[in-house]
């Protein structure tokens, strides 16, 4: 079930070879069985995926409220006009990009280092892989509370920094300092997510044939050259996948913010999804919140298309 299986994916449009003479009745029976078996999934899809997708576009142009006796009215681009003049919205866009621009390369890079380290033929590999993966199976809510505790002014991180510098370090109130709050959340997010990315890199590494390395070894290629000319080109597909998924995950930043800072201090950690939830849920403005969600979706779509395009060209 690893990445290796992705190439022989049967193309959906190709029908299986038509079998020897089959009666029309048998074929009708087959279509009937298919209809019965796919209906539950399709019905649920329509109700909870297709309808919300359509609504995401429709509600953004209305004044819909979550709890209101009146039906939503069409108000054109008013939500977007309001949105684009709201400084907090722009702050949330900036913060979201700031988070993604730092977290995506750091997480992808560190994860690749971990994957290479775990892939090396040295004893204890299983143990190391397990430990690196532990934060992934720890829920983000737990992780956020735990790090909130560690980041306190009188918390573990400050105390440890003071110990190693013999008290020359002045404690920082990490999450209440507009300059430090976002970097603190970034560090924690990388800590939590990097094990997941490592596993995907690892699956990619294992598709590269070992003989290539043996041949390079015979030719006297060093570690760096082996990485540069065998590993890196061999990971092209994995790379695209990882960049796209962690960028989308980074753009979706919400839980950490809601648990740790509520967007503060001074809007330095508010994000697009956090703003959407705040307007659409806490303030009950479904229409306005949907407009923010729509902007978020366009952002995600653009970035993943651009990234796909770039990595394909360069490869």
């Amino acid at each position: 079930m690893a990445i290796t299986q992705q190439s022989p994916t049967p193309s959906p449009s190709l029908s299986p070879p038509t079998a020897s003479p089959r009666s029309a009745r048998a074929r009708r029976g087959e279509a009937g069985a298919a209809a019965l078996m796919i209906t539950p999934a399709l019905a649920l899809f329509v109700l909870f995926l297709i309808v919300p997708i359509v609504l995401a576009f429709a509600l953004a142009f209305t004044n819909a409220r979550l709890i209101s006796p009146r039906p939503p009215e069409f108000i054109g681009l008013d939500n977007f006009a309001l949105l684009f003049t709201d400084p907090v919205f722009w702050a949330s866009v900036r913060n979201t990009f700031y988070f993604a621009v730092v977290v995506v390369p750091v997480q992808a890079g560190l994860a690749l280092l971990l994957a290479v380290l775990v892939n090396a033929k040295v004893r204890g590999t299983r143990f190391f892989r397990t430990v690196y993966f532990l934060p992934v199976v720890t829920s983000m809510v737990v992780v956020s509370l735990l790090w909130r505790f560690m980041y306190q002014q009188d918390g573990l991180i400050n105390k440890a920094l003071q110990s190693v510098t013999f008290d020359r370090f002045t404690p920082v109130d990490w999450l209440n300092d507009p300059a430090w709050a976002m970097p603190a959340i970034m560090l924690m997010s990388v800590w939590q997510g990097v094990g997941f990315t490592m596993i995907i890199w690892l699956a990619g590494l294992q598709t590269i044939p070992g003989e290539l390395y043996e041949a390079a070894e015979l030719d006297g290629a060093g570690t760096w050259h082996q990485f540069r000319y065998i590993t890196w080109p061999g990971l092209l597909q994995t790379r695209t996948f990882i960049l796209v998924t962690i960028t989308i995950a980074a753009f979706s930043l919400f839980t950490q913010i809601n648990v740790m800072t509520q967007g503060g201090p001074l809007d330095s950690t508010t994000t697009v999804v956090y703003q959407a939830v705040r307007s659409g849920y806490q303030q009950l403005q479904t229409g306005y919140g949907s407009a923010i969600s729509l902007v978020f979706f366009v952002l995600v779509l653009t970035v993943s298309l651009v990234q796909r395009h770039l990595t394909r060209e360069r490869g």
Partner: peptide, 20 residues
């Protein structure tokens, strides 16, 4: 397969309004 690209965060608010 096309729906795989849509993150849940995009749909949360319309879905909330809809289930209500």
């Amino acid at each position: 397969l096309a729906t795989l690209i849509v993150p849940f965060e995009t749909l949360a608010l319309p879905l909330l309004w809809w289930v209500n």
